[in-house]
């Protein structure tokens, strides 16, 4: 078992990412003065309790050649959001899908998804396929391509006050 100070230290350490050694959990344990089993146990706890959202690697789509980044937004009747979202997430090209509040009169779209592709034509054709296959012609959507990414920093969320992504 890790005490509170060790748990806090562990969170700070893994915010920087997992140490890149063949036994990363042993390496973390050594840095906080604990043992590997305890570190693994608490990481599993944090995963199960959803404190840790994802435990994997994060791609830089742009660098990998997926330079067309589209935020596709839909104006969905509020009571149909879940059923439409269920259709969208069935497509492997849809990488994120969120319901968000409308900001009328400036913004009426309430369902957002992200689609990455190698070029704009591919992404637009992909969205057309989604609309055709799922009969979404009656739902207004807009495709907001990004023209420039100005800032991206890794998710670093201070836990200094037990706070963080």
């Amino acid at each position: 078992m890790l005490n509170t100070a060790q748990q806090h230290a562990l969170r700070l350490l893994i915010q920087e990412g997992l140490p890149l050694v063949s036994r990363p959990y042993a390496c973390l344990a050594e840095q906080i003065g604990s043992d590997e089993d305890s570190v693994r146990a608490i990481l599993k706890d944090w995963q199960e309790s959803k404190l840790i959202k994802r435990f994997g690697l994060v791609l830089n789509h742009h660098k990998l050649g997926y330079v067309a980044n589209a935020m596709v937004v839909w104006d969905v009747p509020d009571d149909a959001v879940e059923s439409i979202a269920a259709k969208l997430i069935g497509f492997s090209g849809v990488t994120l899908c969120y319901q968000r509040p409308r900001r009328l009169p400036q913004w009426r779209f309430n369902l957002f998804c992200m689609i990455h592709g190698k070029n704009r034509a591919d992404v637009l054709a992909y969205i057309d396929d989604i609309v055709q296959q799922q009969n979404l012609q009656h739902i207004e959507h807009k495709v907001l391509f990004s023209t420039f990414q100005y800032k991206q920093r890794g998710g670093r969320y201070a836990v200094a006050s037990a706070g963080a992504a």
Binding site: R54, F55, V58, G155, A164, A165
Partner: peptide, 9 residues
């Protein structure tokens, strides 16, 4: 890769 390891909620 922009990150390797756990992401907190």
């Amino acid at each position: 890769l922009s990150r390797f390891g756990p992401m907190f909620h």
